[in-house]
Design a binder for these strands. Structure first.
Length: 420
DNA sequence: TCTGGGGTCCTAGGACCC
DNA sequence: TCTGGGGTCCTAGGACCC
């Protein structure tokens, strides 16, 4: 047994694939390399037409002029990813397609191919696990990796291992990524952004003041638009200015938990471990309609969508081997307000009809007088199918089986809560 | 020109139980 | 008789992240 060093300095890496969704598309359409391209919108129609019109032509040989442009885009949706040439126009993730079209009308727009992206996601993660097994999944294009005990993980502060991982991912997938290595997840996450694309940044504990403090507070993972705005009102713009405030002062303004966390974050303190396995808490399906729909006038259409969402979430549960006890719905109104309702059953289920019935009961408790832009169905309180927790039956609640407004069948009801 | 879809975690009030 | 306290579960909303 080798002598285990008690106190190897913690080296945590954050790895982020560069413009992931767009880069996957560029492998298919290399003729778009170097051009502004955005992925998003979710409407596959234009892409289908493109391929149809060029049937028999290899994808790589479809002329650039044949691709749909952002200025011709119609419909709802946001940008999922923009290539770096597109980003130079100020276009970025989560931006509405219409706004992006103003900034960069000549950008080529492609839909997301989720199956393809998932395939590449599995591939790059497999490459990492081969080299450094302590990896935490943070979504489709991001991971944390604990370098501490990996051979070579300490050399040059982690740069040697980061280079190896970068090279191995490129060889396996043709895709580039950016890596930050630091004493903890919080700093590693910020560091991975320092040198994009295809960069590596090494940050040590003693670098926090010089490299982290000048950054805007929004760069801290966990400070979003709301907290940023509030901090600005308090005349705090940089992480250094945040660090300069007494802990108690932050607790007074942001609460015991969030205030204390903010103070630690500003000082670069973060002890969270890299978590290799986790169980899902909920599964959901939701959809934004092409146009806002009205509960009564568009009842048939909404009913079909509602039932389909239930069917799809049930399918997801079964495919992944889970059952859930809490069934919930989500509505977004035309004014963008969101309402949720949920109902906990006496037993866990993965059955579409059971989910549909429970979701229908939830529907009765919400205002259906306004036009809707989104409908969603969620199943929570998950347990592995067949596990003891899954079999547990709570005190039965009185089962209600009266039809809801969206039930399949003749329209007999009025919206329950619509008031003038 | 309004703003996707999939998640996690936190807070807070009320029900209910001991 | 005028008012305990702790714990857990349920529900709704919101901030945040990828």
């Amino acid at each position: 047994m080798h002598n285990r060093r008690v106190s190897l300095p913690r080296r945590i890496a954050h790895l982020d694939m560069d413009a992931f969704f767009a880069s996957v598309e560029l492998l298919r359409y290399p003729q778009l390399q170097g051009l502004p391209v955005v992925i998003g919108g979710g409407r596959r129609e234009a892409d289908r037409l493109l391929r149809e019109r060029h049937a028999g032509v290899p994808l790589a040989q479809i002329p650039v002029a044949a691709f749909p442009l952002l200025k011709d885009y119609v419909g709802r949706g946001v940008i999922t990813t923009a290539t770096y040439p597109a980003r130079q126009f100020g276009v970025g993730s989560a931006m509405g397609m219409m706004k992006a079209a103003k900034l960069c009308p000549q950008a080529i727009v492609l839909p997301v191919d989720f199956d393809e992206v998932r395939r590449f996601s599995r591939a790059f993660k497999a490459v990492i696990r081969e080299i450094a097994p302590v990896m935490e999944d943070r979504g489709i294009d991001e991971v944390y990796i604990d370098f501490t005990e990996v051979p070579g993980g300490q050399r040059e502060g982690g740069r040697v291992l980061a280079r190896l991982i970068q090279k191995s991912i490129f060889e396996a997938t043709g895709l580039t990524c950016s890596i930050g290595v630091a004493p903890n997840k919080l700093i590693a996450k910020m560091a991975s952004e320092f040198d994009k694309p295809n960069g590596i940044s090494i940050v040590h504990e003693q670098d926090v003041q010089a490299r982290i403090w000048p950054l805007p507070v929004r760069k801290i993972n966990g400070i979003g638009p709301k907290s940023e705005e509030k901090l600005h009102r308090l005349h705090i713009r940089t992480i250094g200015e945040l660090a300069a405030r007494p802990r108690e002062w932050l607790v007074d303004h942001f609460g015991a938990s969030y205030g204390a966390w903010m103070h630690d974050a500003a000082w670069g303190r973060d002890e969270r471990p890299v978590v290799t396995e986790s169980e899902p808490v909920s599964m959901s399906r939701e959809t934004t309609f092409e146009r806002d729909l009205h509960a009564v006038r568009d009842r048939t259409e909404l009913g079909a969508i509602f039932t389909d969402l239930c069917r799809r979430v049930a399918e997801d549960l079964r495919r992944k081997g889970y059952v859930g006890r809490t069934i919930g719905i989500k509505l977004r109104y035309d004014d963008f307000r969101t309402a949720t309702r949920d109902l906990t059953l006496d037993h866990a289920t993965d059955d579409a009809a059971t989910i549909r019935r429970a979701a229908g009961q939830c529907l009765k408790r919400v205002d259906l007088g306004r036009r809707l832009r989104l409908l969603g169905v969620r199943v929570g309180k998950l347990a592995k199918a067949g596990s003891e927790a899954a079999a547990e039956v709570r005190t039965p609640v009185a089962a209600e089986h009266t039809p809801d407004l969206f039930h399949e069948g003749p329209a007999v009801e009025r919206p329950a809560t619509s008031k003038g």
